[in-house]
Design a protein around this nucleic acid. Structure first.
Lengths: 183, 183
DNA sequence: GGGATAGTTCAATTATTCTTGAACTCTGGA
DNA sequence: TCCAGAGTTCAAGAATAATTGAACTATCCC
């Protein structure tokens, strides 16, 4: 639950040297950024996502400007590998976007901040697949239930029916949820 | 994602010997039970609960009769420790109940099968705490945002306001969800 | 009390998941 | 063509979480 202890970065070109606390660009997070990152790390854990994903999204969420992969990795003090994977995931779920109007050669990222987009991306990627494969499971269960010893059959079939009911409700809940969160 | 590979139990008193496949009482799961257990193991993973919790609930869910801690542990081939912890959790969230009308000395368990009870127990235990401590986080963030460099202040305050909005919505969603799933 | 059964706890082990970093691909100059 | 920067991949290592099993407490019955 802690959050990465901030061992300050190693190599930083030291011109002008004096930097009070709240920096605006290079490696190391300003307190505000650190707090935002921490908040999203917590959120990530709740929904079962790796910490690095929460860190990355948190940083982009609070950032005033778009950031490149390298900047993200450096500021959060995580490897390029993690940053790459995290950003890939966030792109896939629609939680970040590659910034258009780009001067530099590399991609720059911006957080998508619409709750609807975030939630629906997450639900589609993380929940829907499970609901779908649940269907197969239920079918198998139903078939097995039909062959159960007579004494138990009624009970067991009732349970399977209840599961199917749950499944139906969960399926219908998804779009409702998205609507509730939408705009 | 697999589910415990079923290494059949070691010591079983072998009278009458011939047992085709679908047994009705002692250690080892009947195919129907195994399928139910597997289904709930999957569900457990989705919501971030340990596999053993899914196994235990799955077994109790499909079971026609109440089961004791020892029976649960033996049939699932898990340790008493796991069974104890898993059952404790399930009791706390209201997903299983200690069976009244009890002949034997030990406690016997029955699955609670009302979707509303299950969902609200889960949400209360697993989600609500995070929402509450989120409040503290938001406050801290707000305070930091107020001290941000002027150039960023407006942007940052806007983001914080958005987060507060999300938080409000999530809070109001919880009771709605429970209502939707209820009865 | 003494012995047996039921259940809990928790340190050590085991399993799972995340992160790293080096090797790799791709692309755009020079 | 060759180089340099941007980004990806994935095996190995580190970090986390779950499970075991043995020691313990509590209770019931003789």
């Amino acid at each position: 639950m802690a959050f990465q202890t901030s061992t300050a970065s190693t190599s930083s070109t030291s011109h002008t040297s004096s930097r009070p606390v709240s920096v605006q660009s290079p490696a190391g997070l300003a307190p505000l950024e650190a707090e935002a990152v921490e908040l999203f790390v917590g959120l990530a854990q709740v929904v079962g996502l790796p910490k690095s994903v929460g860190q990355i999204y948190g940083l982009l969420y609070i950032s005033t400007v778009s950031l490149s992969l390298d900047e993200v990795a450096e500021r959060l003090d995580i490897s390029k590998g993690s940053a790459s994977q995290g950003l890939k995931f966030l792109r896939q779920t629609g939680a970040v976007q590659v910034c258009e109007e780009n001067d530099s050669r590399c991609d720059r990222y911006l957080a998508e901040t619409g709750l609807r987009a975030l939630a629906s991306g997450f639900l589609k990627e993380q929940i829907e697949p499970h609901l779908e494969n649940g269907e197969g499971r239920l079918d198998r269960l139903k078939r097995l239930a039909a062959t159960a010893p007579a004494a138990e059959r009624a009970h067991v079939l009732q349970r399977v029916k209840q599961l199917e009911n749950w499944h139906r409700r969960a399926s219908s809940l998804l779009p409702l949820l998205i609507r509730f969160l939408g705009k």
